[in-house]
């Protein structure tokens, strides 16, 4: 069993129900495996405790490249421009890949330092189930915000792929808001809902300076949210909301 699988198990993401059950069974009987999982959780807690995780440029580039590869492999054509039709199940899988990639990149970076550019990202198949969506880990939410900021920093509105990816991130943001609401974290849900129109404006605005200003606003508000998460995490158990 790889660390990546354990990490995905911890994040409740990207593993089939069958695989989750296998890991649960193994954890029940294997003390060493439990210890490995505990180390991983500790690492993530340490990562979570850093207010800002600045990924080095090569890692950011690789993350974006990976997201685009995933997108081109699994995405439908770009969305309709002014009404947002309900998405297919396959389109909904992309954010799961994307969030997993974000979380994994953060974890790998803190474990291995700057990774060689040629090293492929290890991604488990994204077959998340509704049962796995019942929890939302703070590292995953932070990864979502980080991933969004990473995309926005170099966002090219003339690229249909990047617009489609931003559209998926907006949809993912909605999902996080909905889950936060369901899990009783209305405070997080409200901030995420407030961020959505900013992202929609970024997606649709043409003037570069205005777009840069909107991105600055997004970064301020997202970073403020992370500061709040950090403050809460230092007082309480940090894993899940």
């Amino acid at each position: 069993m790889t660390d990546d699988e354990l990490l995905l198990f911890h994040l409740s993401d990207g593993l089939s129900a069958e695989r989750v059950a296998q890991i649960q069974t193994a954890l029940a009987s294997d003390a060493d495996l439990r210890k490995r999982l505990a180390h991983l959780q500790a690492d993530l807690t340490t990562l979570n405790a850093k207010a800002d995780v600045a990924l080095p440029e090569p890692v950011q580039q690789r993350l974006q490249l990976k997201l685009r590869q995933l997108q081109s492999a699994s995405m439908a054509p770009a969305r309709a421009p002014f009404w947002h039709l309900p998405r297919t199940q396959s389109a909904w899988l992309l954010p799961a890949f994307a969030a997993s990639a974000g979380a994994l990149v953060m974890w790998l970076y803190t474990h291995q330092g700057a990774m060689p550019n040629t090293q492929p990202l290890a991604l488990a198949p994204a077959t998340a189930t509704s049962a796995q969506a019942q929890t939302m880990s703070l590292p995953a939410l932070r990864a979502h915000l980080l991933q969004t900021q990473t995309l926005l920093e170099t966002f090219d509105p003339t690229s249909s792929q990047e617009r489609a990816l931003l559209g998926e991130i907006i949809a993912q943001n909605q999902n996080y808001a909905a889950r936060a609401q369901q899990l009783g974290r209305a405070d997080l849900a409200r901030v995420l809902r407030a961020l959505e129109p900013v992202l929609v404006e970024v997606e649709n605005i043409n003037e570069p300076s205005a777009r840069a200003a909107l991105i600055e606003q997004f970064e301020f508000e997202a970073n403020s949210l992370q500061t709040k998460l950090q403050a809460r995490a230092s007082k309480q158990a940090p894993k899940t909301i």
Binding site: D13, R87, M136, Q174, A178, Q182, P197
Partner: peptide
Amino acid sequence: MLLTNSRRTPLAVAFFAAS
């Protein structure tokens, strides 16, 4: 993470953003 599909659509949100 793959989370539940919210019914909230960006359509009205885009309306607010624009106006």
